[in-house]
Design a protein around this nucleic acid. Structure first.
Lengths: 141, 141
DNA sequence: GACCCACCTCTACAGTTGTCGACAATCTAC
DNA sequence: GTAGATTGTCGACAACTGTAGAGGTGGGTC
């Protein structure tokens, strides 16, 4: 599923909050950016037509929508396209950009170290995977 | 600098090859995709108008163009936009997508390990940076 | 039961993007 | 120097994107 910038911004709300109404999404976005209700509603309509959202239920006259596509699926697709065009398919410069100049926050950096630790263990012993996964997902230290 | 998918595909040629003519770019792209010369030339024209390409010299009637913007600058900008919209600003799910399910090739994985080794050394001792950098950039093993 | 507000529907519009054809200019090879 | 091929110029067009206004309508309030 290929989505535009604004469509992605809107989808983020649904991915985080679950079912939302158009006015709710508008208020949330209007917090950060100056945009009218009409604009937000139009994008929601388009997302519905694309099959990214569906009407889940109605409260009075207000329609509640919910995501049909998962963030993972969309992100995976978008990432592949991104790497293909921006980096000509080579992820090394992407990794370089991500790691250079303190681009990562401390949390992101720790997360990466854990992911790699898990990766290494998967490719050496192949055991203790459950524990590794749990450690990474919990995010504690 | 914000560039579209096709514009990026075209820029890749200039970043790799240096100065190129429109017919050259067309032939290179037509290898992989069925697209007319007109289409490629139109995109080159737009890149010129955007200031991403400039005419470097002429051979007979044929115009040679070259990149004005660096891949690094474009990639950095594009990456920021990408993370902001696709991942709501959090790079952790991006790292997760990159590392899961053998997405990385062996070379990319090794490259990442080296980048991280360098990163670690920068943040512990702070010495031997020159050697670390040289090791990463050379890419040998 | 009239009114106002919140919310929906529909239409519109300009800028971008991918795509190309028509036609003009020039070069090259006889 | 003339014809065919090459390359450039220009205009066009449909789909997508961000943006919004006009106007209808259900629903609660006094």
């Amino acid at each position: 599923m290929r989505l535009s910038d604004f469509e992605l911004d809107v989808m983020q709300r649904f991915w985080r909050e679950g079912a939302c109404s158009a006015p709710e999404v508008h208020q949330a976005i209007a917090h950060a950016r100056d945009v009218t209700y009409s604009t937000v509603k139009t994008v929601i309509d388009r997302l519905e037509r694309k099959g990214a959202l569906k009407r889940s239920r109605q409260e009075g006259r207000t329609i509640l929508y919910e995501a049909v596509v998962s963030p993972d699926a969309v992100q995976q697709t978008m990432l592949e396209r991104f790497v293909a065009h921006v980096f000509a398919g080579d992820r090394r410069p992407l990794l370089n950009h991500l790691l250079k100049d303190e681009q990562l926050t401390v949390e992101e950096y720790r997360y990466l170290e854990r992911l790699l630790a898990r990766h290494r263990s998967r490719h050496t012993s192949g055991v203790a995977e459950v524990a590794e996964v749990a450690e990474v997902e919990s995010g504690d230290d």
